[in-house]
Design a protein around this nucleic acid. Structure first.
Lengths: 118, 118
DNA sequence: GTAATATTCAACCATATGGTTGAATATGAT
DNA sequence: ATCATATTCAACCATATGGTTGAATATTAC
């Protein structure tokens, strides 16, 4: 049986439960960035974004590198792996519910890229 | 580009961010159950578990069927599918870590860094 | 009808969360 | 040295979260 780190899952899922933090992660997927640049698109104060970054950092989803006064943040998606593994146990519970059309699409996709499935 | 329902992801990740709720989902993966039975293993009041079930229900992760005074809960893992899809976009950020080529690049970079900094 | 069971509701409490603002700190530029 | 920039810190506020307890509501059993 797989063991899950409950506190880590708490922090990971907790961090992912906020839209601003999910957007920040999406931004970082495009490449590393500093706090001010990350804050730009968000309609809130810099301090608020700074706090979100601390949450992400504590969850291990973001790594910080201080370069002088600029903090460079990079995505560290590792913890999501365990989150994904946790969720994956429940796949069968929604796969059975797919309607015919979705099943058809499923099949097509499986056929198209049967090399990277499973 | 895939569209994600932000409010749904909020509720889904939020629901998964609590260890009691994750345990309840694991219990329900074994089969439907009523509130009292679900509450059994948890070191808290029945009312507390009842509230957790309401959170899971609002997230769409659990379906309730009233049979007389007994409420039968079943797992409804659908919303997890979207959560998993969201996370999946970041797979490359951890999968690459085991790739030989990436390791090679890692080593090169480390070497270059050492050369630069010393 | 009365009693027991299953579940929620309501009020309450402590702490967490997500935001604000203004001050503090550290670094960089002139 | 001075000024500007990057970031956090501290205090505060409103609301959410996760728990409690005792009462209320339905349903079933006797």
């Amino acid at each position: 049986m797989v063991e899950y780190d409950s506190a880590l899952l708490d922090r990971t899922f907790g961090a992912l439960a906020d839209p601003t933090r999910r957007r920040i992660l999406a931004q970082l997927a495009e490449g590393e960035d500093c706090v001010t640049a990350l804050a730009g698109p968000h309609a809130m104060s810099l301090a608020a974004v700074s706090k979100h970054l601390i949450v992400l950092e504590k969850a291990g989803l973001v790594k910080r590198e201080r370069r002088g006064r600029v903090h460079s943040l990079t995505l560290e998606a590792g913890p999501m792996e365990e989150a994904l593994a946790w969720i994956s146990r429940y796949r069968k519970f929604w796969e059975g519910n797919l309607d015919q059309f979705e099943q058809y699409l499923e099949k097509l996709q499986t056929k198209e890229k049967n090399d990277d499935c499973e």
